[in-house]
Design a protein around this nucleic acid. Structure first.
Lengths: 174, 174
DNA sequence: TCATAAACAGACAAGTCTGTCTATTTATTC
DNA sequence: GAATAAATAGACAGACTTGTCTGTTTATGA
């Protein structure tokens, strides 16, 4: 939190998450991060480059949280339960803001391929995470898909209802 | 396609879908719709009001397409198959642009509650659609959730892979 | 044909945006 | 302590944004 780069990244995380990417200006970021504009452009060539740095930063943070939250669980059922509890946990923590990656996806134009690649890579990692914990199986993909929609519906309705429903569905099926 | 209002709505549909809401300016809309700015503000008080009109317009169109695509199907299995085929159909038709409603959701700020309400209402209608065709059941919610993520993953990866996977999952379960 | 309505073009205000630049101050290191 | 590096503030260019406004032209209907 002491060096400019970290302050920028932390502030951008907050603002992108709260207001969206296109609605958040560089000026607001540097104001709230208490960083001069020249310093900003010292660390990041452009806003899009900041976006990519932010997504990588967010990726590291989010996965670390998910790992920590599910690490100690051993059984398959328990793991799946826990994974949906993680959504509830993050919804509360971050006020139903949904997925940073999908939020930015919606704002991309065709020429922002570099950003798209980071988003795809994040989601591939998530899918792999489930395949590692549940064996590469239809179930892993199933959980991935329900996990994705559970996050989005939480954001849309600012509610955990469909997270609980997802858990019900899985319990019924397994 | 002949009166200004319809031209605006059609052009906005295209541009919002292609470029996103915040990245599309009024000026571009009126240029491409070949409508004077004064005429635009005759029909819509503000850009946000256009957004709401667009979403209602899109809602009507999209649901009509979905109805038409699934109307003649009788059995439960066939209906579910058909519903996922509809995603593939729309992906091809609209170049993997995903869901207009969720795309705009990501761009909303806190004060745009009126727009949020239209999006929620659309998704409630979709969920009701499944509950009507499949009886109010856990299965209906299940299809709704997989349907949602199938659309999003199509957009993200510009591929139907996870739509096919969703069908596999459902076939395995039923 | 003439009055009314609906469209047009486009200038303008007031604000936003990203990115560049100059010039100054604060830290760090030899 | 002097030289170098890293930070600061903030003006500025140029392009964009939404929304208002004036004035002109085209359609419509009696």
């Amino acid at each position: 939190m002491d060096n400019p780069r970290a302050r920028i990244l932390n502030t951008a995380s907050l603002l992108f998450h709260q207001q969206g990417y296109n609605s958040t200006g560089i000026n607001q970021i540097i104001d709230e991060a208490k960083v001069a504009k020249a310093s900003f452009y010292q660390y990041f060539r452009s806003k899009d480059e900041l976006c990519i740095a932010f997504l990588r930063f967010r990726h590291e943070y989010w996965f670390a949280e998910l790992q920590a939250y599910t690490q100690h669980i051993t059984g398959r059922e328990g793991f799946i339960e826990r994974v949906f509890d993680f959504i509830i946990h993050m919804n509360k923590k971050e006020n139903y803001r949904g997925c940073s990656f999908l939020n930015i996806l919606s704002e991309l134009s065709k020429d922002q391929e570099a950003i798209l690649a980071v988003i795809q890579s994040h989601k591939n990692d998530l899918r792999n995470f489930f395949e590692n914990r549940l064996e590469k199986s239809l179930l892993a993909t199933h959980i991935y898909l329900l996990f994705e929609s559970a996050i989005i519906e939480s954001q849309l309705f600012k509610s955990n209802e469909l997270v609980y429903k997802s858990k019900e569905i899985i319990n019924y099926i397994i």
